[in-house]
Computed example of a mutant assay.
Amino acid sequence: MSSAVSRAMPRIAPLTPPYPPEIQAQFDRIMRGAPPLVLFRVMAGHTRAWDKFRAGGLLDPGPLSLRDREIVIDRTCALNKCAYEWGVHVAIFSGLAKLSEDEVRATVQGDAASPCWSPAEQALIAAVDALHHRATLDDGEFAALAAHDVEAQILEIMLLCGFYRTVSYLANGLRLPLEEKAARFPAAL
Rank of each mutant, 00 (worst) to 15 (best):
P35I: 11
L96P: 10
D149H: 09
L189F: 05
E103M: 11
W117C: 10
M31G: 12
P119H: 01
F163N: 15
D74T: 05
A13C: 00
A13H: 00
A13Y: 00
Y164D: 10
F185L: 03
D74A: 10
E151D: 03
L189P: 12
R75C: 06
E85W: 09
G173A: 13
R67E: 03
V42T: 04
L155M: 04
Q24W: 07
C82K: 02
A8Y: 06
L145A: 01
E156F: 06
A120C: 00
P36W: 11
S2Q: 04
S168T: 08
A188V: 09
R11C: 00
P186C: 09
V167F: 14
M43D: 04
A4G: 08
G33K: 07
Q109P: 04
Q153L: 03
H148D: 02
V5E: 14
P63I: 01
L64Q: 08
I154C: 00
E70F: 11
L145K: 05
V90M: 02
P10S: 09
F163P: 00
A25R: 15
D149Q: 03
P14E: 00
P61S: 14
D138F: 00
F40V: 11
L79Q: 03
F93P: 14
D111E: 08
A188P: 09
A183Q: 01
I12D: 00
A113Q: 08
E70R: 10
I23Q: 11
